[in-house]
Design a protein around this nucleic acid. Structure first.
Lengths: 134, 134
DNA sequence: TTTACATATTCCCATATAGGCATGTATTGT
DNA sequence: ACAATACATGCCTATATGGGAATATGTAAA
């Protein structure tokens, strides 16, 4: 099977850097295609196609205004992505804490004598059978 | 040009649903490939290839343990994604507020008499020259 | 060493891109 | 009605993909 379609979900849609640029540009307020073209520095058909993808996954909304098409970012559609990535927040905070703790430990260590300690990390959250070997 | 490589950045790497699954699975703690295979329900070579992508963009770390390779999610690498999506948070909150306000306005409206009000939305954040026409 | 096990890598291919370019379509102005 | 403007769409191509099957690599056990 080939790669999933860019229109299959927001994750695939925002994989393209230009589309992220467009979303950022359109977050502040609605703008016509022409301005996106100059802002992004890509030719009009390409921009239109990117907008098509963003439209299809609901990341932007369009409104006609005469011959202009006013696009704007639909921020709500980005929320799921924010939440998915947010699920990892506690873990990177964990990592930061560990780094911090190690730095502090090192300071104490160089201030005092030395201390042989094993590196366990003592974590085996998955309940599966594991044949670890000390 | 074709689509950007999946290994070009975390955004492209997480576009693949299976890779997201893997990241979620490995967030809690390190696991060997074999367990990922059964958990995700994909054949081993495919899993290895996905892990290769995740490795290349730094979304996972590996550690050898005998003949096992213990993988774990590098949550820190997901943080930029969380922050990029987070930049839109104020806008979706805006949207929610507007919805709320409309609902309230409607309640008042049906409680009292009627009131003709224009929908302006009064926003033109971009400072560019605009030839709008009332 | 030979064998068994855990992963990684290679080869093959149907598929979907992202641009570049040309053209279609809707709307406004003369 | 006709020309001009603002977008959208269609066509073409090099490129990268993800899965399947087969194979290579590396480590441990016999």
């Amino acid at each position: 099977m080939a790669r999933a379609a860019t229109t299959s979900d927001p994750f695939n849609a925002i994989a393209e850097p230009r589309r992220r640029q467009i979303l950022t540009f359109l977050a502040v307020g609605e703008r016509p295609v022409g301005e996106i073209v100059v802002a992004i520095g890509l030719d009009q058909p390409s921009v239109s196609k990117h907008l098509g993808v963003l439209r299809e996954v609901g990341l932007v909304h369009v409104r006609r205004n005469g011959r202009l098409r006013m696009y704007r970012t639909n921020a709500a559609a980005i929320r799921p992505l924010h939440e998915w990535t947010g699920a990892f927040e506690r873990y990177w905070q964990h990592q930061l804490n560990r780094i911090k703790e190690r730095a502090e430990a090192k300071m104490h260590q160089s201030a005092r004598g030395r201390n042989a300690a094993g590196h366990d990390s003592s974590s085996n959250p998955h309940p599966k059978a594991s044949k670890e070997r000390p």
